[in-house]
Design a protein around this nucleic acid. Structure first.
Length: 347
DNA sequence: AAATCGTGGTA
DNA sequence: TTACCAAGATT
């Protein structure tokens, strides 16, 4: 009979191996009574949704430098925040980030609520993020269940039910392990374990504090867990983007509608993205088609963009979009797919 | 409740 | 080159 997994053993491991992050209060500092700023925990958790720590770091520093408190963020312009988020992806997060900052500022006095239920009512905060903020920022005994926790639990119990069907089972396993002592450090410890030891491909079971309790280690099934339902193949869609440059150097751009793909982001006017995109130039001009196409892969389809360019006179009015003069246009405010098209056009 | 929603790193 | 993967939420 294996010993049951011991939260204390994991906390001991975390005390020695916790990763350093700009938003994290390490275990030693936390023991000294210091709690992290809920604003910074919230911001980091939103950025970390489906996103690696490495990708988040610089964005987190940029955001907290520009907007040190939630009230500062709430007062920012929409376009300013979307531009700062550009490149990080899942842009609904940025739109909900602003909504949430404004609700916290106007309805909660600029202070984040501590309890799970109230956090769940805020825009962009779901079950995981509510638990993470509650546990990490306020040391409430909530259970976080992210991809790391799912993997660790599936292996610990050698659970072969495929995700997402296994989610409730794995959640209950995680809940029954959550300790009353140091729940914030514990939440971060399980995720650190999943990120550095109990990894998807080559888990370092030899270094794992929970190895004596791990059913998958005994059965040799760790690398095949968690099971996942098969994924659909991504279709290829085609599209056309139009990069019009006025003779004073201004570029013709548009802000995309709030709903849908790249919602709220700056981009090049273009066609629909489909099997057979319809030509739809945003201004009358002599369009030239570039030899190379911009290729980009989204979550559920591959995109091949034909890039067309034109040089237009000062007095030519666009059918849609707005000319942004050089000092008003920063290519870094573009989402990556649009920046790829820009890079092709300027070379 | 299955589909939608980005991107960069990695094998 | 392709497919998978990463601290999920929303509709």
């Amino acid at each position: 009979m294996r010993e049951p997994a011991d939260p204390g053993a994991l906390l001991d491991w975390y005390d020695r191996h916790a990763r350093a992050m700009p938003w994290r209060v390490g275990p030693a500092t936390r023991r000294a009574g210091v709690r992290p700023d809920p604003y910074r925990i919230w911001l980091s958790e939103i950025m970390l949704q489906q996103t690696t720590v490495a990708a988040v770091r610089d964005y987190f520093v940029k955001f907290t430098t520009l907007w040190p408190r939630v009230t500062d963020l709430a007062a920012a312009e929409d376009a300013e925040v979307m531009a700062a988020w550009a490149g990080l992806g899942y842009y609904a997060r940025a739109r909900n980030l602003l909504k949430c900052a404004r609700v916290v500022t106007s309805e909660h006095g600029g202070t984040f609520p501590a309890d799970h239920a109230t956090l769940l009512t805020l825009p962009g905060i779901g079950p995981y993020t509510a638990a993470a903020i509650s546990a990490i920022a306020f040391d409430a005994p909530e259970t976080v269940v992210d991809g790391n926790v799912e993997r660790v639990m599936a292996r610990l119990h050698d659970e072969h039910t495929p995700l997402p069907a296994a989610k409730p089972i794995l959640t209950e396993m995680a809940r029954s392990l959550t300790p009353q002592e140091r729940p914030g450090d514990y939440a971060q410890a399980v995720m650190d374990l999943g990120a550095t030891i109990c990894t998807p491909r080559k888990p370092a079971c030899g270094l794992c504090p929970w190895r004596p309790s791990c059913a998958a280690f005994v059965n040799g099934t760790a690398t095949e867990l968690p099971k996942k339902s098969p994924k659909k193949k991504k279709p290829v869609r085609l599209g056309i983007v139009y990069l019009a440059r006025r003779i004073d150097g201004a570029w013709l751009l548009e802000t995309r509608p709030d709903k849908g793909l790249l919602g709220g982001m700056l981009g090049w006017p273009g066609s629909d993205w489909s099997d057979a995109p319809v030509e739809d130039p945003p201004i009358r001009a002599e369009w030239k088609t570039l030899d190379a196409e911009a290729r980009h892969t989204f979550t559920h389809f591959h995109l091949r963009l034909t890039v067309k360019t034109a040089l237009v006179p000062m007095d030519r009015a666009p059918l849609r979009g707005t000319f942004l003069e050089p000092d008003a246009f920063d290519p870094e405010a573009l989402p990556t797919v649009m920046r790829k098209a820009y890079n092709l056009a300027r070379t």
